[in-house]
Simulated assay, not measured.
Amino acid sequence: MKYFSTITALLVALVFAITVPALELNDSHLTNPAWPEHARLHEAWQLLSNALIVVLAAWLVATRKAPLLGLTLAAIISLSFLFAWLTGDAYGGSMLHSDGTQMTVGGVNAAVLIVSLLAVLLAIAISGERRLAVGE
């Protein structure tokens, strides 16, 4: 289980510390001239916070210092994204880019698909780590 947990935590770190920032460091997000400066500050803050939290999470899991805590932190980042997506209508949020496009895989938004998969992997890893913690 420790290898599964470590691989899962590293995948989450890869997505939220490298892939997402790489995709958002452009004119559709972080440097979007149509966004208020305050919104761009929040975007930069969110990208940096999420990246640092998932790197810490991966370290906690990989070093076995606190694997359950690390996986929980990674799950918070993943589930927060999914919650924001699910409740987007309530605050005017959308996965569509300013030009009305989105990246899809089989008609499903790619980010939603990837983060949903990560959430499932994290749930499995957390369940396994909890069983290890109680000696099952």
Rank of each mutant, 00 (worst) to 15 (best):
F81Y: 06
L82G: 08
A110C: 11
L118W: 00
G106T: 07
A119P: 01
A44P: 10
F16Q: 12
H97V: 13
F4E: 01
L41R: 14
P67A: 02
A9I: 00
A110R: 11
E37D: 13
W85H: 14
T72E: 06
A123M: 04
I7G: 04
E37R: 10
S28E: 11
A39R: 12
T6C: 08
G100W: 01
P21W: 03
V108M: 11
W35G: 05
L86S: 15
V134W: 05
V108F: 07
A133R: 12
E24S: 15
W85P: 13
A133T: 11
D89E: 13
G88P: 08
V120K: 02
E43Y: 12
L23W: 09
A123T: 05
T6E: 08
S5K: 03
M95Y: 14
N32I: 05
G100E: 02
P21V: 03
L10T: 04
H38E: 14
G92R: 10
L60P: 01
T87A: 08
N26D: 09
T101K: 13
Y3S: 05
S49N: 15
G107N: 11
Q46N: 14
V120A: 06
V12K: 07
V15R: 07
R40S: 09
T19Y: 10
A125H: 00
L118V: 02
I77S: 09
A90S: 13
V112R: 14
N50Y: 03
S78C: 09
T101L: 08
G128N: 02
V15L: 06
G107H: 09
K65T: 05
A9C: 00
E37A: 12
V20K: 05
V105L: 12
V61F: 00
A111C: 14
E43P: 13
I53K: 12
L60K: 06
G93M: 03
A119D: 05
Q102A: 10
A13N: 08
P36A: 02
M95H: 15
E37C: 10
A34Y: 07
